[in-house]
Design a protein around this nucleic acid. Structure first.
Length: 332
DNA sequence: TAGGCCATCTGGTCCT
DNA sequence: AGGACCAGATGGCCTA
């Protein structure tokens, strides 16, 4: 159990949140520095501290009920709405509310995480060793939907390079590598994979008779997961199928300063893709994949993801930008 | 050690 | 009044 800074150790191992602190907790050992230091640390705000004066804790209940709603005569007159004094009774109510609200919020976030986990579970790429982060899960999900939509429209083969490019758009390099690794699995799907990931490998009913073969050479043998091709729709491959769909994610301003998501495809699938090679044995199964400088050279191009805050990630949709044509040396 | 990711607490706002 | 939702703040954990 993590000990949160705003918690204190209870009697046993249990942790006590500020809202469960007793009055004693709210006073420093010397007795004159009440909860302010705790709560300021806890919430990054001193609003509560302002409301909950330490003197209130000294008052007995009768005084509290009596004072509630009364004005504080001896205090200087201040503008703005008067704040009710935080009596002991109000403190208790406040704590109870806060504790309940915290629990609800926790529960809500857990629900959100569960939903995200469900989403992860249907993603085409899964790895037991490299869990997709929340943001990457959402990005990949969006890409996946876009790619499948394109495939449904018949403009994109699920085995094409463009399909993978679409999947990798805006993803971080590690995630792109994961996707690429999933797609690169050929006749010997287990080669270069971690043992725990190998069991995930399923032979998909692809026209190629195996896993979607899609690789790039510099791709080190990975902690990659599997590309769950049965998810895919295997449509006819359209020769020379360009990348000219018009879903919003394809529009970008290009170049540096491009909004995080709508930039050019993530490097691994981009212009540097080279013919497939045997996975390198230099990445032992236990080693978490970390591209060597050489490998990075293979995969690293301008990433629209890096260097941008995530704040504007999904909010930016250049309205009337022409679709980007991906230049590629790759040929189907 | 810096940076990414995460869980949690918190106060504000909106809605019922 | 109370719940849902949201965003900010904070600190722990992990990895490069």
């Amino acid at each position: 159990m993590m000990i949160k800074p705003y918690m204190r150790q209870g009697e046993g191992d249990e942790l006590v949140s500020p809202l469960q602190w007793t009055d004693e907790d709210m006073s420093s050992p010397d007795g004159d520095t009440p909860m302010s230091s705790h709560l300021c640390r806890a919430a990054g705000t001193n609003e509560l501290v302002r409301e909950m004066g330490s003197e209130d804790a000294e008052e007995n209940d009768e005084e509290e009920e009596e004072e509630e709603g009364l004005e504080d005569d001896n205090k200087s007159k201040r503008r703005g709405p008067k704040k009710k004094r935080m009596t002991k009774a109000r403190q208790e109510r406040f704590r109870a509310r806060r504790v309940k609200a915290n629990a609800r919020e926790r529960s809500r976030m857990h629900g959100l995480n569960d939903a995200l986990e469900n989403l992860r579970s249907i993603m085409p790429c899964q790895s037991k060793t490299q869990k997709l982060s929340k943001i990457e899960t959402l990005r990949l999900a969006r890409n996946y939907i876009c790619a499948l939509s394109e495939a449904l429209d018949g403009g994109l083969s699920t085995e094409s390079r463009v399909f993978m490019e679409t999947l990798c758009k805006g993803l971080s390099q590690p995630t792109s590598n994961l996707v690429a690794g999933c797609l690169q699995l050929g006749p010997a799907p287990s080669v270069g994979m971690r043992p725990e990931d190998r069991q995930n490998v399923r032979a998909p009913p692809t026209p190629l008779g195996g896993m979607v073969s899609y690789s790039s050479p510099g791709l080190p043998s990975p902690p990659y997961g599997t590309f769950d091709s049965p998810h895919l729709l295997h449509l006819r491959t359209i020769k020379g199928a360009g990348f000219e769909n018009h879903s919003p994610h394809e529009y970008n301003t290009g170049g540096v300063g491009t909004p995080p998501y709508d930039g050019p495809p993530t490097p691994p699938m981009s212009s540097n893709l080279v013919p497939k090679q045997e996975p390198s044995p230099r990445y032992p199964p236990q080693h978490h994949y970390s591209p060597s400088p050489v490998d990075q050279g293979v995969y690293q191009t301008q990433s629209s993801y890096d260097g941008h805050s995530e704040g504007s990630y999904d909010s930016y949709h250049p309205p009337h930008m022409p679709p980007q044509h991906i230049t590629s040396i790759y040929r189907d």
